[in-house]
């Protein structure tokens, strides 16, 4: 019966994940392999294709003063809009974790404040391959080389995420594995300022058991996968720390840049 409970928990997290996140790894891989029957993504690999892509791709939000803004700032603003959207999706997912909404409300805020970027970078890996990443819900594909060719400091934003993604994708996780993993990440009992750690650790413990069983069943040939995946949590913290430092630099040096209020809240006093 205990393992039946853990399987039910895994199934529940997978269903919430599919409900909360519009693009899954399976969908992203199908788009990249051209197996969806839709148009293939528009490839952005230089300034001309960027311009053509901006006309062709239907973006969810069109930031104001777009035309006259520098390319790097435009790309960065779109990243911000997508991040804000992702925070909303992750919040919705977190609320579906059994017991999460019964935690102290301050602790819910803390868990999201520290967890959302680790979740964003875990899930971003699903949209990436070694050559680039899917953008705008799979309508576009921006190459890694193009992102590297942007002026400093913007060229430094995505490269560490690609490096992490290549290692993370090497684990061969499926969407159900990822769903449970991000729930484990959110329920980290060692975030600074938590008031009531014990119930968080208890929730995380049952999700960890569900993850261990899930990996055993879906990857019977990789007995070390659970341990390897838990090690990735350390890498994620490192990436977020570097990301926050880079954003501080950008805010100091780029007068034109504005940071969305939700992201300001999250980054303030983070690390």
């Amino acid at each position: 019966p205990e393992s039946a409970d853990l399987r039910a928990l895994a199934k529940h997290m997978f269903e919430s994940y599919n409900k909360a996140f519009p693009i899954t790894k399976a969908k992203s891989r199908a788009i990249m392999a051209g197996k969806t029957g839709d148009k293939s993504p528009f490839v952005i690999y230089d300034m001309n294709s960027l311009k053509a892509g901006e006309e062709r791709i239907k973006f969810k939000q069109t930031p104001l003063q777009e035309q006259n803004t520098e390319v790097e700032i435009r790309i960065f603003q779109r990243c911000q809009f997508r991040s804000v959207e992702a925070v909303r999706e992750i919040t919705e997912f977190a609320k579906s974790i059994p017991g999460f909404i019964n935690l102290d409300l301050n602790d819910q805020v803390t868990l999201l404040k520290y967890g959302v970027h680790e979740v964003i970078f875990s899930m971003l890996a699903s949209l990436m391959n070694k050559d680039g990443l899917l953008i705008a819900a799979g309508q576009g594909f921006m190459t890694r080389e193009f992102l590297k060719s942007l002026r400093k400091p913007f060229c430094d934003i995505m490269e560490p995420k690609f490096e992490f993604a290549m290692k993370f994708n090497g684990l061969g996780l499926n969407d159900c594995d990822i769903a449970i993993f991000i729930a484990v990440v959110i329920l980290s009992g060692d975030r600074p300022g938590l008031i009531n750690v014990k119930p968080i650790e208890e929730l995380q413990d049952s999700i960890l058991q569900a993850l261990a069983l899930q990996l055993k069943i879906s990857h019977p040939d990789s007995p070390q996968l659970f341990a390897k995946l838990l090690q990735k949590m350390t890498d994620l913290r490192q990436i977020v720390t570097e990301h926050v430092q880079l954003l501080h630099t950008i805010r100091k040096t780029e007068a034109e840049m504005s940071l969305h209020p939700l992201l300001q809240e999250i980054y303030k006093d983070l690390y």
Binding site: V87, R88, L105, V109, T110, P261, L262, E265, K268
Partner: peptide, 21 residues
């Protein structure tokens, strides 16, 4: 903490509320 994280707090209460994208 809630005061310093008004939007996050609002999303937790009602994730359909607008965040002024």
């Amino acid at each position: 903490l809630k005061e310093k994280h008004k939007i996050l707090h609002r999303l937790l209460q009602d994730s359909t509320s607008p965040v002024d994208l």
